[in-house]
Amino acid sequence: MKSAFKKRESRSGYFFTLPTLLIVFSLIIYPLGYAIFISMQRTNLISEWKFVGARYYAELLTDAEFLNSLKISLTFAFFVVVGNFVVGLLLAVILNQNLKFATTFKIILMLPWLLPEVVVALIWKWLFNPTYGLINYILNTIGLIDSDVSWFDSSTSALAGVIFVATWKGYPIVMIMMLAGMKNIPAERYEAAAIDGATRLQQFRHITIPGLRPIFLVTCILETAWWFKHFTVIWLMTSGGPAGATKVVSISIYQQAFGDFNFGKAAAESVIILAILLAASYFYSRAIRNDND
């Protein structure tokens, strides 16, 4: 009896998941398998094929420059994700109150997400330009500075700069997901809490945060992955400079693959990233789930 129920259960489960499974399976399994295969070759994918085994993995894991680029990616992703969540969650909480003009504000606050990455990177690069940029001009005019500041000249400021721009571009997705998540929390819970005399902050802490948990988890994992692998904004703003200070791991992959045609090594770097991010996701889901129970 029970096993019949189980069988039906799993049949329904397969029925619902099958279309997605097929799409993802057919498009991901080949590239992933292919990447793992070529990561053990020295290859330009056409005329050169030489088996090298785990050589690239061993090399990469002891290569100071690669490890440093992982560290930069991690720093970048950490600050961008934290920034996105702080700003996105704050704005979502405010917008969820349905104040007057909320829709107008929502549209304005969505705009960075809607703009193409290339435009966002170029416009900020220009605004920060020491000679032609508006930022220096305004600061000069109001007297905060008296000579042109070169914003991205130091390693720290360049990294901070790309983090700022990435956050500017990235927080709306968190905002929208959290707004959707808040609609998933029964309004009665707030009403009951309000009657019990709970303050807004207490409501936020004890109702909103736990209620958002499932969506928080998925957004957090994927945000981390996206920004860890991020390429465009950094490439267009600093190309990894100054002196390698913003050379994230995807720049290194791109240069290996398309700069040097060393697809094997690029694939090995990608597989390492995949492993790191899988481990991070596991860690996240443990941390966030445990907290729940």
């Binding site: 590239p31 990447a35 692998k229 995807s250």
Partner: peptide, 13 residues
């Protein structure tokens, strides 16, 4: 996990 893996792999590759 499989769904996730597809998002964790650098898309340029």
């Amino acid at each position: 996990a499989f769904l996730l893996a597809s998002q964790l792999f650098p898309s340029i590759m």
